[in-house]
């Protein structure tokens, strides 16, 4: 800027940002700490701000055998369930949105706009407003406690379809003409030209949808009744009992750390794709 930088002007942003970072990180740091102590220390609120010595024992117990009093399912199983659910949802959304956007943008057929609107309107019907009827349909189809029931109803995606549509609109028409001259039909054009061009968009979308899938709460809460179908986000809530004496907080916190680590790592390691995906799905 035009003014001379004052010392204060240079220090203030760092102070504000550091305070922000600390506030944001503190709850997770505390969870991490709690997961390294034994039950009694945590239960009596005697944790210090430095790690304890029970880390390996806690994580080993929780991953392979689970918490005692509350849910007996090993967290390892829950992690696997969460991972499969997130993966199926992310890949499923990408696959069906990619082909429906392809149909809407590159084909001329009756009711094209109607098709677009039919998908678009689902934006206004989040699962929370149709909980019990949707649950009943899934139950009637015999899909309770299955991966299909867990994932299929969440796979339809207006946002992903809109994003692909937007991207396809920027693909120059000359590319289509060129591949038509080469004798390529719609399937070959899709496979050889469009798909390679869409890789970055697909990757960005995958990051966002993986997080979306991993963090699902209400739907798995309704659909899973068997313990071995639970996802980790559901499992952790079941470890916390209102009667404090039953809650093994050090194990619950170890589970919380395991529940937040995979999606957080995805954001941190694939930050560029994450930001791209987030900004573009909201446009």
């Amino acid at each position: 800027m035009v003014e001379r930088e004052t010392l204060l002007g240079r220090v203030v942003p760092h102070v504000v940002l550091l305070v922000g970072v600390c506030i944001v990180a503190f709850p997770v740091y505390l969870a991490l700490l709690a997961s390294t102590y034994d039950a009694a220390t945590v239960q009596n609120g005697q944790m210090s701000l430095l790690p304890g010595s029970q880390m390996l024992e806690n994580y080993e117990r929780i991953i392979f055998s689970g918490a005692r009093a509350t849910t007996r399912e090993p967290v390892g199983t829950m992690l696997l369930n969460s991972f499969l659910m997130a993966l199926i949802i992310a890949l499923g959304k990408i696959a069906i949105s990619l082909i429906s956007a392809y149909a809407i943008v590159f084909f001329r057929f009756p009711f094209r706009m109607a098709a677009f609107w039919l998908i678009f309107v689902t934006l206004m019907l989040p699962v929370e407003v149709r909980i019990y009827p949707t649950y009943k349909i899934v139950a009637d189809l015999g899909l309770l406690d299955t991966y299909t029931g867990l994932t299929l109803p969440l796979i339809a995606s207006a946002t992903a379809t809109l994003l692909f549509r937007q991207f396809f609109m920027t693909v120059p028409e000359e590319l289509v003409e060129a591949s038509k001259i080469d004798g390529a039909g719609p399937v070959r054009f899709f496979k050889d030209t469009l798909l390679p061009l869409s890789i970055t968009t697909m990757a960005a979308l995958f990051v966002i949808q993986f997080i979306y899938g991993w963090n699902q709460y209400l739907w798995p809460l309704l659909i899973t009744t068997r313990d071995n179908m639970q996802t980790i986000v559901i499992g952790i809530k079941k470890m916390i009992v209102t009667q404090d004496a039953l809650t093994e907080w050090q194990l619950a916190m170890a589970t919380a750390v395991l529940a937040l680590l995979p999606p957080v790592l995805v954001v941190v390691l694939m930050q560029k794709l994450f930001v791209k995906g987030l900004v573009e799905t909201e446009k």
């Binding site: 709850p27 916190m253 919380a256 937040l260």
Partner: peptide, 20 residues
């Protein structure tokens, strides 16, 4: 350091704050 909480599930965020 500021963007990662986006990835934390709401239920997990709740449990972290409940613990504090």
């Amino acid at each position: 350091m500021l963007i990662w909480p986006y990835a934390v599930a709401p239920a997990v965020a709740g449990v972290l704050w409940l613990f504090m």
